[in-house]
Computed example of a mutant assay.
Amino acid sequence: MINKKLAEQPLAQLLGQRIAELRKSRRWTQAQLAERLHVEPETISRFERGASAPSLHTLENLASVLRVSIGDLLVHSSTAPDDQAMRISAWLSELKPADRAFVTGIVQQLCERLRSPGD
């Protein structure tokens, strides 16, 4: 169910918020995202403010650079387990193999600890 407040926001604003959220989750500045997209930092600023929307071509490039699907750019952040797993997967994909193994080991231990009753 879509939050009524979200449904009332223009698509460009929702998309801009999502771009900013994904960029920040990777700890990138607007300039760093702009560099990866081969655009000016002001372009990223306009997208994130909802002042303008990216072309379909740029949307495709944004999704690729941010390692998400175009659909993921167009939907509001979700707390659904599959959506959270995709975000974690994107974060892990930027790590070296040894670091990925380390992080997944810690996550596994935490999950096992939290699942065990009565500790």
Rank of each mutant, 00 (worst) to 15 (best):
M1A: 13
M1W: 06
I2L: 12
I2D: 13
I2E: 15
N3F: 01
K4A: 15
K4W: 13
K5G: 12
K5S: 15
K5C: 10
L6G: 04
L6H: 12
L6Q: 14
L6A: 14
A7C: 03
A7N: 07
A7H: 06
E8Y: 08
E8G: 13
Q9F: 02
P10E: 10
Q13V: 15
L14Y: 00
L15N: 01
L15F: 02
L15V: 03
R18A: 01
I19S: 03
I19H: 00
A20D: 07
A20S: 12
E21N: 11
L22K: 00
L22Y: 00
L22D: 00
L22V: 01
K24F: 06
K24Y: 08
K24E: 15
K24G: 11
K24L: 13
S25Q: 14
S25W: 02
S25C: 02
R26G: 09
R27H: 15
R27P: 08
R27T: 13
W28P: 01
W28D: 05
T29M: 10
T29L: 06
T29I: 11
T29R: 12
Q30M: 13
Q30L: 11
Q30W: 01
A31N: 09
Q32M: 12
L33G: 04
L33Q: 07
A34Y: 02
E35P: 01
R36P: 04
L37K: 05
L37S: 09
L37P: 08
H38A: 14
H38S: 14
H38I: 09
V39K: 03
V39F: 04
V39I: 12
E40F: 07
P41W: 03
P41R: 07
P41C: 06
E42N: 12
E42W: 10
E42I: 12
T43C: 02
T43R: 04
I44V: 15
I44P: 02
I44K: 04
S45G: 13
S45K: 11
R46F: 10
F47P: 02
F47G: 07
E48P: 03
R49H: 08
R49N: 12
R49S: 13
R49W: 02
R49E: 07
G50S: 05
G50I: 01
A51Y: 10
A51E: 14
A53C: 05
A53Y: 04
P54N: 09
P54V: 08
P54H: 08
P54L: 09
P54M: 08
L56P: 09
H57P: 11
H57Y: 11
T58P: 01
T58S: 10
L59F: 07
L59W: 06
E60G: 10
E60K: 08
N61Y: 08
L62M: 05
L62K: 03
L62P: 02
A63N: 03
A63F: 00
A63V: 07
A63W: 01
V65T: 11
V65D: 04
V65W: 00
L66I: 03
L66Q: 03
R67L: 09
R67H: 13
R67S: 14
V68S: 05
V68Y: 02
V68C: 13
